[in-house]
Amino acid sequence: MRSGVFFSDYQGDMQLRRLPLEKLRLGLFLAALCVFPFFADTYWLTLANQIAIATIGALGLNVLVGYTGQISLGQGAFMAIGAYSSGIFAARFDIPFFLSIPIACLITAAIGVFFGLPSLRLKGLYLAIATLAAQQIVEWVITHWTGLTGGTEALVVPSPRLFGVRLNRDFNFYWISVGLALLVALFVANLFRSRVGRAMVAVRDQDIAASALGVDVFRTKLVAFATSSFLVGLSGALIAHYRGIVTWERFTLETSITYLAMIIIGGLGTVSGSFFGAAFLTLLPALITTVGRDLQTSAPGIAAVLPFVQQGVFGLVVILFLVLEPEGLAKLWRNVKDYFRTWPFSY
């Protein structure tokens, strides 16, 4: 019987997945992801695409908030920048999507660094308020710079095509969004085994101690802002190409709040938590809508209150998680795993 996890070499100890069981689980998960689209209908494929895109965004936000400890309420703005720049390059300059998306990511990263500059002086809640202002300003610029963004009108993005195949069908896009989400997850998991990632964690835990240990705090924060906004821009750009239109309403302060809630419900500073949170907060409104639709026959007035039910449940879930399980779904999942690791002889 296994009594713990022991390794006699560093290589074994530093693997991302250390136990045979973990490898098996990962393999099963990947296999399920490959098989899923052949059995799912459009509804579930749409949800899967949304979850994959949200996972990328949540991972990006987690790099900044969960791992580096820089609170940002500007997630919606950065997603908007990614979506609009990719959309504008594709729609106005006929640049194919596989070029416009990376360009959009780089632009978002550059703007992210710019908004990260105040973090030199500001900490904690001051930074949160500064990013709140950034969110409002970016929203205003998007709705008022009509010549570039189309203002409050929707920006129509041409369908991404590769060798004549239209990619923004749910089935085709699934492979792009899920593939990218997996790549990003791998990248983030590896980032925090590297020197740069460890420096970010050190800055989060105690910035003064980190700088005493030779970490360039300001540079680390800026790298975190750049990495984070690159990924967030990616998720924004994917939304633009997946939906085919970009509207500013999808990238408001509410978006920022939803993403913050994702990483808090999922678990701050964990890769799996970003996925759990994204899945949870994508499926929850869908579930409420479905239940509401089923109840429609017995309670006709329910359609009118559904948005408020969603809003209220969202707030309640956030509060309950913070009060009862601040480490989120990732911690719950870890508890389950720990329980079964030595099951049935847990003592």
Binding site: L260, A261, V318, I319, L322
Partner: peptide
């Protein structure tokens, strides 16, 4: 005693609940 982000998020959750309550 929880970190700043929990405090921020809990009041955001609260605002969401209050808004839903008023609308409801």
């Amino acid at each position: 005693g929880e970190p700043v982000i929990s405090m921020i998020m809990v009041t955001i959750g609260l605002s969401s609940v209050l808004k839903a309550l008023v609308n409801g």
